[in-house]
Design a protein around this nucleic acid. Structure first.
Lengths: 194, 194
DNA sequence: GTCTATATCGCGATAGAC
DNA sequence: GTCTATCGCGATATAGAC
Protein backbone atom coordinates (compact mmCIF):
# COMPACT_ATOMS: atom_id res chain seq x y z
CA UNK A 1 0.00 0.00 0.00
CA UNK A 2 3.03 2.29 -0.19
CA UNK A 3 2.48 3.37 -3.76
CA UNK A 4 0.14 6.30 -4.19
CA UNK A 5 1.20 7.35 -7.65
CA UNK A 6 2.28 5.71 -10.89
CA UNK A 7 0.73 3.91 -13.84
CA UNK A 8 -0.37 0.31 -13.77
CA UNK A 9 -2.48 0.50 -16.87
CA UNK A 10 -1.85 -3.06 -17.96
CA UNK A 11 -3.69 -4.47 -14.98
CA UNK A 12 -6.00 -1.74 -13.76
CA UNK A 13 -8.37 -1.99 -16.73
CA UNK A 14 -9.22 -5.67 -16.22
CA UNK A 15 -9.41 -5.17 -12.47
CA UNK A 16 -12.00 -2.45 -12.89
CA UNK A 17 -14.11 -4.68 -15.10
CA UNK A 18 -13.87 -7.60 -12.70
CA UNK A 19 -14.75 -5.51 -9.68
CA UNK A 20 -17.62 -3.78 -11.43
CA UNK A 21 -19.04 -7.07 -12.69
CA UNK A 22 -18.91 -8.65 -9.25
CA UNK A 23 -20.35 -5.63 -7.45
CA UNK A 24 -23.05 -4.87 -10.01
CA UNK A 25 -24.17 -8.49 -9.97
CA UNK A 26 -24.17 -8.69 -6.20
CA UNK A 27 -25.78 -5.38 -5.26
CA UNK A 28 -27.23 -3.99 -8.47
CA UNK A 29 -25.96 -1.29 -10.80
CA UNK A 30 -27.74 1.61 -9.13
CA UNK A 31 -26.69 0.52 -5.66
CA UNK A 32 -22.97 0.46 -6.47
CA UNK A 33 -20.94 3.66 -6.51
CA UNK A 34 -17.86 4.45 -8.54
CA UNK A 35 -16.09 4.97 -5.23
CA UNK A 36 -16.83 1.38 -4.20
CA UNK A 37 -15.46 0.02 -7.45
CA UNK A 38 -12.35 2.16 -7.09
CA UNK A 39 -11.84 0.98 -3.53
CA UNK A 40 -11.97 -2.67 -4.64
CA UNK A 41 -9.40 -1.99 -7.31
CA UNK A 42 -7.17 0.08 -5.07
CA UNK A 43 -7.30 3.40 -6.92
CA UNK A 44 -9.08 6.69 -6.37
CA UNK A 45 -12.50 7.20 -7.94
CA UNK A 46 -11.23 9.76 -10.43
CA UNK A 47 -8.84 7.23 -11.94
CA UNK A 48 -11.72 5.11 -13.24
CA UNK A 49 -12.53 7.79 -15.77
CA UNK A 50 -9.32 7.06 -17.62
CA UNK A 51 -10.92 3.73 -18.56
CA UNK A 52 -14.57 4.51 -19.03
CA UNK A 53 -16.31 7.72 -20.01
CA UNK A 54 -18.99 7.13 -17.37
CA UNK A 55 -20.75 4.53 -15.27
CA UNK A 56 -23.33 3.70 -17.94
CA UNK A 57 -20.61 2.87 -20.46
CA UNK A 58 -19.04 0.53 -17.94
CA UNK A 59 -22.31 -1.35 -17.51
CA UNK A 60 -22.91 -1.54 -21.22
CA UNK A 61 -19.40 -2.75 -21.90
CA UNK A 62 -19.78 -5.59 -19.40
CA UNK A 63 -23.08 -6.72 -20.87
CA UNK A 64 -21.99 -6.30 -24.44
CA UNK A 65 -18.82 -8.34 -24.06
CA UNK A 66 -20.68 -11.04 -22.18
CA UNK A 67 -23.22 -11.41 -24.96
CA UNK A 68 -20.54 -11.31 -27.63
CA UNK A 69 -18.58 -14.06 -25.92
CA UNK A 70 -21.75 -16.13 -25.49
CA UNK A 71 -22.72 -15.81 -29.12
CA UNK A 72 -19.21 -16.68 -30.16
CA UNK A 73 -18.99 -19.72 -27.90
CA UNK A 74 -22.15 -21.40 -29.08
CA UNK A 75 -21.72 -23.45 -32.23
CA UNK A 76 -24.65 -25.37 -33.63
CA UNK A 77 -24.30 -28.16 -36.17
CA UNK A 78 -27.39 -27.98 -38.39
CA UNK A 79 -26.48 -31.33 -39.93
CA UNK A 80 -26.65 -33.26 -36.66
CA UNK A 81 -29.85 -34.88 -35.40
CA UNK A 82 -32.10 -32.30 -33.68
CA UNK A 83 -32.19 -34.14 -30.38
CA UNK A 84 -28.40 -34.27 -30.24
CA UNK A 85 -28.29 -30.56 -31.02
CA UNK A 86 -30.77 -29.85 -28.24
CA UNK A 87 -28.75 -31.87 -25.76
CA UNK A 88 -25.62 -29.96 -26.68
CA UNK A 89 -27.47 -26.67 -26.24
CA UNK A 90 -28.82 -27.63 -22.83
CA UNK A 91 -25.44 -28.73 -21.51
CA UNK A 92 -23.69 -25.77 -23.07
CA UNK A 93 -26.11 -23.25 -21.66
CA UNK A 94 -25.98 -24.63 -18.14
CA UNK A 95 -22.20 -24.91 -18.08
CA UNK A 96 -21.78 -21.45 -19.54
CA UNK A 97 -24.31 -19.93 -17.12
CA UNK A 98 -22.51 -21.44 -14.15
CA UNK A 99 -19.10 -20.41 -15.47
CA UNK A 100 -20.26 -16.82 -15.90
CA UNK A 101 -23.05 -16.50 -13.40
CA UNK A 102 -22.30 -12.88 -12.52
CA UNK A 103 -22.43 -11.81 -16.15
CA UNK A 104 -25.57 -13.86 -16.81
CA UNK A 105 -27.29 -12.34 -13.83
CA UNK A 106 -26.21 -8.85 -14.81
CA UNK A 107 -27.25 -9.23 -18.40
CA UNK A 108 -30.87 -9.76 -17.68
CA UNK A 109 -31.23 -7.92 -14.38
CA UNK A 110 -29.80 -4.63 -15.50
CA UNK A 111 -31.42 -4.32 -18.91
CA UNK A 112 -33.70 -1.71 -17.37
CA UNK A 113 -30.76 0.48 -16.42
CA UNK A 114 -29.42 0.74 -19.97
CA UNK A 115 -30.04 3.79 -22.08
CA UNK A 116 -32.46 3.29 -24.92
CA UNK A 117 -29.85 2.74 -27.59
CA UNK A 118 -27.72 0.45 -25.43
CA UNK A 119 -30.82 -1.55 -24.56
CA UNK A 120 -31.65 -2.07 -28.21
CA UNK A 121 -28.20 -3.42 -28.90
CA UNK A 122 -28.14 -5.92 -26.03
CA UNK A 123 -31.69 -7.01 -26.82
CA UNK A 124 -30.73 -7.79 -30.37
CA UNK A 125 -27.87 -9.98 -29.23
CA UNK A 126 -30.17 -11.79 -26.81
CA UNK A 127 -32.72 -12.42 -29.52
CA UNK A 128 -30.05 -13.82 -31.77
CA UNK A 129 -29.03 -16.33 -29.11
CA UNK A 130 -32.64 -17.32 -28.43
CA UNK A 131 -33.20 -17.85 -32.14
CA UNK A 132 -30.45 -20.46 -32.11
CA UNK A 133 -32.50 -22.63 -29.80
CA UNK A 134 -35.72 -21.87 -31.63
CA UNK A 135 -34.15 -23.14 -34.84
CA UNK A 136 -33.28 -26.46 -33.22
CA UNK A 137 -36.85 -26.86 -32.01
CA UNK A 138 -38.27 -26.06 -35.44
CA UNK A 139 -35.96 -28.56 -37.10
CA UNK A 140 -36.89 -31.13 -34.49
CA UNK A 141 -40.56 -30.55 -35.08
CA UNK A 142 -40.13 -30.69 -38.86
CA UNK A 143 -38.21 -33.96 -38.73
CA UNK A 144 -40.70 -35.54 -36.34
CA UNK A 145 -38.07 -36.01 -33.63
CA UNK A 146 -39.86 -33.56 -31.33
CA UNK A 147 -43.39 -32.43 -30.56
CA UNK A 148 -43.28 -28.69 -30.14
CA UNK A 149 -46.49 -26.69 -30.07
CA UNK A 150 -44.91 -23.27 -30.40
CA UNK A 151 -41.20 -23.09 -31.08
CA UNK A 152 -40.72 -19.47 -30.04
CA UNK A 153 -42.58 -19.81 -26.76
CA UNK A 154 -40.92 -23.13 -26.03
CA UNK A 155 -37.49 -21.68 -26.66
CA UNK A 156 -38.16 -18.86 -24.21
CA UNK A 157 -39.50 -21.31 -21.65
CA UNK A 158 -36.48 -23.61 -21.94
CA UNK A 159 -33.98 -20.80 -21.70
CA UNK A 160 -35.81 -19.49 -18.66
CA UNK A 161 -35.64 -22.90 -17.06
CA UNK A 162 -31.95 -23.34 -17.79
CA UNK A 163 -30.88 -19.86 -16.82
CA UNK A 164 -32.64 -20.08 -13.47
CA UNK A 165 -29.99 -22.55 -12.43
CA UNK A 166 -27.89 -19.57 -11.39
CA UNK A 167 -30.56 -18.62 -8.85
CA UNK A 168 -29.98 -21.56 -6.57
CA UNK A 169 -26.75 -23.30 -7.61
CA UNK A 170 -23.96 -22.95 -5.09
CA UNK A 171 -20.56 -24.51 -5.72
CA UNK A 172 -19.97 -27.40 -3.36
CA UNK A 173 -23.69 -27.93 -2.81
CA UNK A 174 -25.69 -31.12 -2.91
CA UNK A 175 -25.40 -31.58 -6.66
CA UNK A 176 -22.35 -31.43 -8.89
CA UNK A 177 -22.52 -29.80 -12.28
CA UNK A 178 -22.47 -33.05 -14.24
CA UNK A 179 -25.50 -34.28 -12.37
CA UNK A 180 -27.32 -30.99 -12.86
CA UNK A 181 -26.73 -31.21 -16.59
CA UNK A 182 -28.15 -34.73 -16.60
CA UNK A 183 -31.31 -33.78 -14.73
CA UNK A 184 -31.94 -30.70 -16.87
CA UNK A 185 -31.41 -32.65 -20.04
CA UNK A 186 -33.94 -35.18 -18.81
CA UNK A 187 -36.46 -32.41 -18.23
CA UNK A 188 -35.77 -30.70 -21.55
CA UNK A 189 -35.91 -33.93 -23.53
CA UNK A 190 -39.27 -34.81 -22.03
CA UNK A 191 -40.66 -31.35 -22.57
CA UNK A 192 -40.24 -31.68 -26.33
CA UNK A 193 -41.90 -35.07 -26.27
CA UNK A 194 -38.81 -37.23 -26.70
CA UNK B 1 -53.90 20.46 -8.18
CA UNK B 2 -55.25 23.33 -6.07
CA UNK B 3 -55.06 21.49 -2.78
CA UNK B 4 -51.72 21.80 -1.02
CA UNK B 5 -52.85 20.83 2.46
CA UNK B 6 -55.25 18.42 4.07
CA UNK B 7 -55.46 14.73 4.87
CA UNK B 8 -56.33 12.08 2.33
CA UNK B 9 -55.16 9.16 4.42
CA UNK B 10 -57.72 6.74 3.12
CA UNK B 11 -56.27 6.79 -0.38
CA UNK B 12 -52.68 7.96 0.01
CA UNK B 13 -51.46 4.75 1.64
CA UNK B 14 -52.51 2.45 -1.22
CA UNK B 15 -51.31 4.99 -3.78
CA UNK B 16 -47.86 4.99 -2.22
CA UNK B 17 -47.69 1.21 -2.35
CA UNK B 18 -48.86 1.10 -5.95
CA UNK B 19 -46.41 3.75 -7.07
CA UNK B 20 -43.51 2.18 -5.20
CA UNK B 21 -44.28 -1.26 -6.60
CA UNK B 22 -44.43 0.01 -10.15
CA UNK B 23 -41.31 2.16 -9.88
CA UNK B 24 -39.23 -0.39 -7.98
CA UNK B 25 -40.14 -3.08 -10.50
CA UNK B 26 -39.42 -0.86 -13.46
CA UNK B 27 -36.20 0.84 -12.38
CA UNK B 28 -34.97 -1.09 -9.36
CA UNK B 29 -35.17 -0.30 -5.67
CA UNK B 30 -31.84 1.49 -5.46
CA UNK B 31 -32.53 3.57 -8.54
CA UNK B 32 -35.82 4.97 -7.26
CA UNK B 33 -35.91 7.87 -4.80
CA UNK B 34 -38.52 8.64 -2.20
CA UNK B 35 -39.00 11.95 -3.97
CA UNK B 36 -39.93 10.12 -7.20
CA UNK B 37 -42.51 8.03 -5.39
CA UNK B 38 -43.95 11.11 -3.73
CA UNK B 39 -44.18 12.90 -7.06
CA UNK B 40 -46.17 10.00 -8.56
CA UNK B 41 -48.57 10.07 -5.66
CA UNK B 42 -48.89 13.82 -5.63
CA UNK B 43 -47.53 14.55 -2.17
CA UNK B 44 -44.28 15.89 -0.80
CA UNK B 45 -41.52 13.46 0.10
CA UNK B 46 -41.82 14.08 3.82
CA UNK B 47 -45.43 12.89 3.79
CA UNK B 48 -44.35 9.37 2.88
CA UNK B 49 -42.89 8.93 6.32
CA UNK B 50 -46.34 9.02 7.87
CA UNK B 51 -46.88 5.66 6.15
CA UNK B 52 -43.53 3.91 6.32
CA UNK B 53 -40.66 4.31 8.77
CA UNK B 54 -38.15 4.19 5.94
CA UNK B 55 -37.53 3.06 2.37
CA UNK B 56 -36.39 -0.42 3.35
CA UNK B 57 -39.62 -1.08 5.24
CA UNK B 58 -41.57 -0.05 2.17
CA UNK B 59 -39.70 -2.59 0.03
CA UNK B 60 -40.09 -5.33 2.60
CA UNK B 61 -43.78 -4.63 3.01
CA UNK B 62 -44.36 -4.96 -0.73
CA UNK B 63 -42.50 -8.24 -0.97
CA UNK B 64 -43.96 -9.64 2.21
CA UNK B 65 -47.56 -8.96 1.25
CA UNK B 66 -46.99 -10.35 -2.23
CA UNK B 67 -45.63 -13.61 -0.86
CA UNK B 68 -48.37 -13.83 1.75
CA UNK B 69 -51.05 -13.37 -0.90
CA UNK B 70 -49.37 -15.96 -3.13
CA UNK B 71 -49.15 -18.54 -0.36
CA UNK B 72 -52.74 -17.88 0.57
CA UNK B 73 -54.00 -18.14 -3.01
CA UNK B 74 -52.47 -21.50 -3.78
CA UNK B 75 -54.52 -24.46 -2.60
CA UNK B 76 -53.32 -27.98 -3.32
CA UNK B 77 -55.56 -31.02 -3.05
CA UNK B 78 -53.35 -33.90 -1.89
CA UNK B 79 -56.12 -36.37 -2.63
CA UNK B 80 -56.31 -35.54 -6.34
CA UNK B 81 -54.21 -37.38 -8.95
CA UNK B 82 -50.66 -35.95 -9.08
CA UNK B 83 -50.86 -35.02 -12.73
CA UNK B 84 -54.05 -33.07 -12.17
CA UNK B 85 -52.42 -31.29 -9.24
CA UNK B 86 -49.42 -30.42 -11.39
CA UNK B 87 -51.64 -29.03 -14.13
CA UNK B 88 -53.44 -26.85 -11.60
CA UNK B 89 -50.14 -25.60 -10.27
CA UNK B 90 -48.82 -24.73 -13.73
CA UNK B 91 -51.91 -22.82 -14.74
CA UNK B 92 -52.20 -21.13 -11.35
CA UNK B 93 -48.58 -20.03 -11.33
CA UNK B 94 -48.68 -18.59 -14.83
CA UNK B 95 -51.94 -16.75 -14.29
CA UNK B 96 -50.81 -15.40 -10.95
CA UNK B 97 -47.44 -14.32 -12.32
CA UNK B 98 -49.09 -12.44 -15.16
CA UNK B 99 -51.65 -10.87 -12.83
CA UNK B 100 -48.93 -9.62 -10.50
CA UNK B 101 -45.92 -9.33 -12.73
CA UNK B 102 -44.49 -6.26 -10.99
CA UNK B 103 -44.61 -7.95 -7.60
CA UNK B 104 -43.19 -11.20 -8.99
CA UNK B 105 -40.34 -9.35 -10.59
CA UNK B 106 -39.66 -7.34 -7.46
CA UNK B 107 -39.77 -10.34 -5.18
CA UNK B 108 -36.88 -12.09 -6.76
CA UNK B 109 -34.91 -9.17 -8.16
CA UNK B 110 -34.67 -7.17 -4.98
CA UNK B 111 -33.90 -9.94 -2.53
CA UNK B 112 -30.36 -8.62 -2.42
CA UNK B 113 -31.49 -5.22 -1.23
CA UNK B 114 -33.23 -6.57 1.84
CA UNK B 115 -31.61 -6.40 5.24
CA UNK B 116 -30.45 -9.74 6.61
CA UNK B 117 -33.48 -10.36 8.77
CA UNK B 118 -35.95 -9.25 6.11
CA UNK B 119 -34.19 -11.49 3.60
CA UNK B 120 -34.53 -14.49 5.86
CA UNK B 121 -38.24 -13.96 6.18
CA UNK B 122 -38.96 -13.60 2.47
CA UNK B 123 -36.71 -16.55 1.67
CA UNK B 124 -38.65 -18.75 4.04
CA UNK B 125 -41.92 -17.85 2.36
CA UNK B 126 -40.40 -18.57 -1.04
CA UNK B 127 -39.15 -21.95 0.10
CA UNK B 128 -42.56 -22.81 1.44
CA UNK B 129 -44.12 -22.10 -1.95
CA UNK B 130 -41.48 -24.11 -3.79
CA UNK B 131 -42.04 -27.02 -1.44
CA UNK B 132 -45.64 -27.12 -2.55
CA UNK B 133 -44.59 -28.02 -6.06
CA UNK B 134 -41.89 -30.37 -4.85
CA UNK B 135 -44.49 -32.33 -2.91
CA UNK B 136 -46.59 -32.81 -6.03
CA UNK B 137 -43.58 -34.13 -7.90
CA UNK B 138 -42.67 -36.52 -5.11
CA UNK B 139 -46.20 -37.85 -4.94
CA UNK B 140 -46.23 -38.23 -8.71
CA UNK B 141 -42.98 -40.14 -8.62
CA UNK B 142 -44.18 -42.36 -5.78
CA UNK B 143 -47.42 -43.21 -7.54
CA UNK B 144 -45.69 -43.93 -10.80
CA UNK B 145 -47.55 -41.17 -12.63
CA UNK B 146 -44.35 -39.21 -13.20
CA UNK B 147 -40.68 -39.88 -13.78
CA UNK B 148 -38.75 -37.34 -11.74
CA UNK B 149 -35.03 -37.77 -11.20
CA UNK B 150 -34.67 -35.15 -8.50
CA UNK B 151 -37.81 -33.58 -7.13
CA UNK B 152 -36.14 -30.55 -5.55
CA UNK B 153 -34.11 -29.65 -8.61
CA UNK B 154 -37.05 -30.31 -10.92
CA UNK B 155 -39.29 -28.07 -8.84
CA UNK B 156 -36.78 -25.23 -9.07
CA UNK B 157 -36.41 -25.77 -12.80
CA UNK B 158 -40.17 -25.76 -13.41
CA UNK B 159 -40.76 -22.67 -11.33
CA UNK B 160 -37.94 -20.94 -13.19
CA UNK B 161 -39.52 -21.88 -16.50
CA UNK B 162 -42.97 -20.69 -15.48
CA UNK B 163 -41.88 -17.47 -13.83
CA UNK B 164 -39.84 -16.43 -16.85
CA UNK B 165 -43.11 -15.87 -18.66
CA UNK B 166 -43.12 -12.38 -17.17
CA UNK B 167 -39.88 -11.63 -19.03
CA UNK B 168 -41.41 -11.66 -22.45
CA UNK B 169 -45.21 -11.64 -22.11
CA UNK B 170 -46.85 -8.44 -23.23
CA UNK B 171 -50.59 -7.99 -23.06
CA UNK B 172 -52.09 -7.94 -26.51
CA UNK B 173 -49.15 -9.84 -28.00
CA UNK B 174 -49.16 -12.79 -30.33
CA UNK B 175 -50.42 -15.25 -27.71
CA UNK B 176 -53.31 -14.98 -25.32
CA UNK B 177 -53.04 -16.21 -21.77
CA UNK B 178 -55.14 -19.31 -22.30
CA UNK B 179 -52.88 -20.45 -25.11
CA UNK B 180 -49.76 -19.75 -23.05
CA UNK B 181 -51.11 -21.89 -20.25
CA UNK B 182 -51.74 -24.72 -22.72
CA UNK B 183 -48.24 -24.61 -24.16
CA UNK B 184 -46.57 -24.44 -20.77
CA UNK B 185 -48.66 -27.29 -19.47
CA UNK B 186 -47.58 -29.34 -22.48
CA UNK B 187 -43.95 -28.63 -21.70
CA UNK B 188 -44.32 -29.34 -18.00
CA UNK B 189 -46.24 -32.56 -18.54
CA UNK B 190 -43.59 -33.85 -20.89
CA UNK B 191 -40.76 -32.86 -18.60
CA UNK B 192 -42.06 -35.18 -15.88
CA UNK B 193 -42.39 -37.98 -18.37
CA UNK B 194 -46.15 -37.94 -18.76
C1' DG C 1 -2.26 6.95 -15.37
C1' DT C 2 -3.13 8.38 -10.98
C1' DC C 3 -3.59 11.65 -7.41
C1' DT C 4 -6.07 15.38 -4.61
C1' DA C 5 -9.55 18.59 -4.53
C1' DT C 6 -13.86 20.16 -5.73
C1' DA C 7 -18.18 21.57 -8.36
C1' DT C 8 -22.78 20.33 -8.46
C1' DC C 9 -26.35 17.75 -7.45
C1' DG C 10 -29.84 14.70 -5.29
C1' DC C 11 -30.38 11.50 -1.67
C1' DG C 12 -32.93 9.72 2.98
C1' DA C 13 -34.74 11.38 6.79
C1' DT C 14 -36.35 14.85 10.35
C1' DA C 15 -38.45 19.23 12.53
C1' DG C 16 -41.99 22.15 13.24
C1' DA C 17 -45.99 24.84 11.36
C1' DC C 18 -50.72 24.23 10.08
C1' DG D 1 -51.72 14.01 7.38
C1' DT D 2 -49.33 17.15 4.75
C1' DC D 3 -46.55 21.05 4.02
C1' DT D 4 -41.99 23.69 3.75
C1' DA D 5 -37.39 23.84 4.97
C1' DT D 6 -33.25 21.84 6.04
C1' DC D 7 -29.39 18.78 7.88
C1' DG D 8 -25.76 15.84 6.65
C1' DC D 9 -24.11 13.01 3.51
C1' DG D 10 -22.49 10.69 -0.62
C1' DA D 11 -23.22 10.53 -5.52
C1' DT D 12 -21.05 11.33 -10.55
C1' DA D 13 -17.97 13.67 -12.89
C1' DT D 14 -14.17 17.09 -13.84
C1' DA D 15 -9.73 20.02 -13.24
C1' DG D 16 -5.13 20.40 -12.70
C1' DA D 17 -0.74 18.77 -10.45
C1' DC D 18 2.70 15.21 -10.88
Amino acid sequence: MARTQGSRAEITGPLIREAALRLFARHGYAAVSMRQIAREVGVQAGALYAYTPDKQALLFDLMQSHMARLLDSWRDDPAAPPLARLERFVRFHIADSLDHSDAVFLSYMELRNLTEENYRQISNMRRKYESGLELILRDGQASGAMQVEDSRLSAMALIGMLTAVTNWYRAGGRLDRERIGDVYWGLAKGSVGA
